[in-house]
Nucleic acid binder design. Structure first.
Length: 698
DNA sequence: GTAGGGTTAG
């Protein structure tokens, strides 16, 4: 009593042991359930009874409860008011902050703990290491490592796992390895940290090898996280066999039905282009699908060009009452963009608005891309302007839309605005920007941007950027410079580079260089049928029919067939496909009549068929007939008779648009007063009022 | 007696 009287404040007696234990377990249950209301009531009772002031143990429990309920303000207030704090109090604070993603504060609390002269516990150390990992801060991380070594905690399971995770998140894999190797015991979490560390740092093979090492120890204690990580690495390797063998381990270990593992399996199969097994895993009956698994499969279908199947999964998801999320929408919209499915894309857009995901930057960017790829450039721009948070992806999308439509100066303007708003361009930005310059003939600008990549933006040009420059020189007719560039460039020219040069040679009728390009291209892509077609096109345009014959013989001998040209057009929610001289359509008679009518009308306007490019030594009348029945022309005629005048005509083509059809469409759009958009395998052509957006430059 | 780690989709 004498001692108590000597203190400034009266301290109530601590509750008895049984009461303390009861209260602590009540607080624990509040924390676990996240029941902040009940926790606060308990807190108030404990304050009234004086237990908070007298029992550090109960106060620690209160801090834990608050941090589990994500009420860090209360936790901090309580911590500040504690008359006595022990190591657990500090530890609880550090881990509470780290758990609530306040990583910087967690590190600061750990430092304050040391300044207060309290020896760090291994719990505090592992929490602080976790915070450093989340911040990817190697410097404080390494300091924590030193503290751990000094206290002898550095090989402890939790501390070492977090330190290894921290090093790998900082990209310091060898350090991570060293910490990991020194662990006397490794559990599933430690292994996961390493497997995932390798995978996230791009060492996918090492990630799989780590898994093999773990398996060698009998996969003891392997859990769903281990399988998720290794499956993700295996998906990245796109190795179907490896994936299947891991799938076997998953099944043996009994994790096939775990939701996260199933999702990882579906994702792995989808990434390995094995959509069949992906859908098999999805369809294992577990009482319904979830968004992630469905989206993974949708994404797999989209990546393998199976948009129809992806749409099927989407419909099934909706039927099961699963709400699509931003991932689902961006995958689906990307699929619509790839196939220029405007109708379906617009429907998804409506859904996106309904679910309020329109504010998501990813979804917004895919919509910009989709409308751009469907040819609706002004709608695309409108959506871009509505994106609140413009990420590099959004800017790349808009620059690419301008590039594909041949609006070079707008692309450059968008690039300037991107830089001005502080968004750093990446290598994709430059592919789009250089394409824009190339498609518009802005050679000097393109070259300047190319050289600025490394000098100004610190981005090493890759082969796709070099190809853009070759394409740019080629389109501008500066073939010698293109050849000099391709010969001098530090990276090995890829097929696209030689293809660009060959295409340019065909446009300009340059036989010598065309042959060089063709030879190089044949080495890289022996099965590419376009090489022979382009080459014979060059000979035909020069009237060298003997050479044309030789190429055709070569094609026959090596059993190379010209890739047939197809055109697609959507009308009344249906996609119609047309080949050359293709009269299989039910409305063939009307289409034929429309074509005849169009030919007469555009000839009156001054259209002269250009047969120069046809690689056949034929009569002009025959050549004209072939030109008139090219797939794109049949598709346009069909669209004109079957679609309401308010709908835009969008024709998709698997090859480049033919030069003569290009001329004809300029006349057709004028006489019919209809905008025609053609998306060929290289770019967009907008035919409006007698002109094309490409400015005849392609 | 109290405190702690890793995981699934652009």
């Amino acid at each position: 009593m004498a001692k108590q009287r000597g203190q400034r404040l009266w301290r109530p007696p601590a509750p008895d042991a049984a009461t303390t234990v009861r209260l602590a377990s009540l607080l624990q249950s509040c924390g676990r359930a996240g029941d902040l209301r009940r926790g606060r009531l308990l807190h108030a009772r404990l304050v009234l009874s004086g237990a908070v002031a007298s029992s550090t143990f109960l106060a620690n429990h209160l801090i834990t409860m608050y941090s589990h309920c994500a009420d860090l303000a209360s936790a901090l207030r309580l911590f500040g008011a504690m008359p006595r704090r022990n190591a657990v109090s500090w530890t609880t604070l550090v881990s509470g902050l780290a758990q609530n993603l306040m990583h910087g504060d967690a590190l600061a609390a750990f430092a304050a703990m040391r300044r207060a002269g309290v020896a760090p516990t291994q719990f505090a150390l592992s929490s602080a290491a976790r915070a450093a990992a989340a911040l990817a801060s190697p410097l404080p991380g390494a300091q924590l490592h030193c503290v751990g070594v000094r206290l002898g905690f550095d090989t402890e399971l939790f501390v070492a796992s977090n330190l290894a995770d921290m090093y790998s998140k900082c990209g310091l894999l060898s350090e991570a390895c060293r910490v990991f190797d020194q662990m006397p015991q490794k559990d599933a979490v430690a292994w996961t940290a390493m497997i995932d560390g390798y995978a996230k740092n791009g060492s996918l093979e090492m990630a799989v090898l780590s898994f093999r090492d773990m398996k060698r120890e009998g996969l003891v204690g392997a859990d769903q996280h281990v399988f998720c990580s290794v499956l993700s690495a295996s998906g990245g390797l796109k190795d179907g066999w490896l994936g299947k063998s891991i799938h076997c381990c998953v099944t043996k270990a009994g994790f096939e039905l775990e939701v996260a593992v199933r999702n990882a399996l579906i994702d792995m199969y989808a990434k390995s282009m094995d959509v069949e097994n992906a859908s098999r895993v999805l369809k294992i009956d577990t009482g319904g699908w979830n968004v992630v698994s469905g989206t993974s499969l949708i994404d797999g279908y989209i990546e393998t060009d199976c948009v129809e199947e992806a749409l099927g999964i989407y419909v099934e998801l909706r039927r099961q009452g699963v709400e699509p999320n931003e991932f689902t929408f961006s995958s689906m919209i990307k699929g619509c963009a790839m196939q220029a499915l405007l109708e379906q894309g617009a429907q998804l857009h409506t859904q996106v608005i309904k679910t309020d995901l329109i504010r998501d930057s990813f979804v917004g960017s895919t919509l910009v891309d989709m409308y751009g790829k469907c040819g609706l450039i002004s709608l695309s721009m409108q959506l871009f302007n509505e994106i609140e948070c413009r990420t590099d992806i959004a800017w790349n999308a808009v620059i690419n839309v301008f590039a594909q439509h041949g609006h070079g100066s707008e692309a450059i303007l968008a690039f300037d605005r991107m830089i001005y708003s502080g968004i750093r361009p990446n290598h994709i930005t430059f592919v789009s920007l250089l394409t824009a310059c190339s498609h518009t003939g802005l050679v000097d600008e393109g070259l300047a941007y190319f050289y600025s990549m490394k000098d100004v933006h610190g981005i090493e040009p890759k082969e796709e950027h070099y190809s853009c420059i070759i394409d740019m020189y080629g389109r501008a007719g500066r073939l010698d410079e293109a050849y000099k560039f391709i010969s001098d460039m530090p990276v090995k020219p890829n097929a696209y580079s030689w293809c660009s040069l060959l295409g340019a040679c065909r446009m300009r009728g340059n036989k010598e260089l065309g042959e060089v390009a063709a030879q190089n291209l044949m080495k890289l892509e022996p099965g590419n049928t376009g090489i022979h077609v382009s080459l014979s096109g060059i000979y035909a345009s020069l009237g060298q029919w003997e050479d044309v014959k030789a190429v055709r013989k070569l094609m026959r001998d090596s059993r190379i067939k010209k890739l047939p040209g197809f055109s697609w057009v959507d009308s009344n929610k249906k996609t119609h496909v047309f080949g050359s001289e293709d009269w299989s359509h039910p409305q063939q008679k009307d289409i034929y009549e429309k074509l005849e009518e169009l030919t007469t009308r555009i000839k009156e306007e001054g259209y002269i068929p250009d047969t120069n490019f046809l690689p056949y030594n034929l009569e002009d009348v025959t050549k004209e007939r072939i030109l008139r029945y090219h797939s794109e022309r049949i598709a346009v005629a069909f669209a004109l008779i079957s679609m309401p005048a308010t709908k835009p005509i969008i024709v998709k083509k698997n090859l480049r648009i033919c030069i003569d059809c290009h001329t004809a469409f300029k006349f057709i759009c004028k006489v019919e007063r209809r905008d025609i958009i053609v998306r060929d395998n290289s770019r967009f052509h907008h035919f409006v009022n007698g002109r094309c957006s490409c400015g005849d430059y392609w």
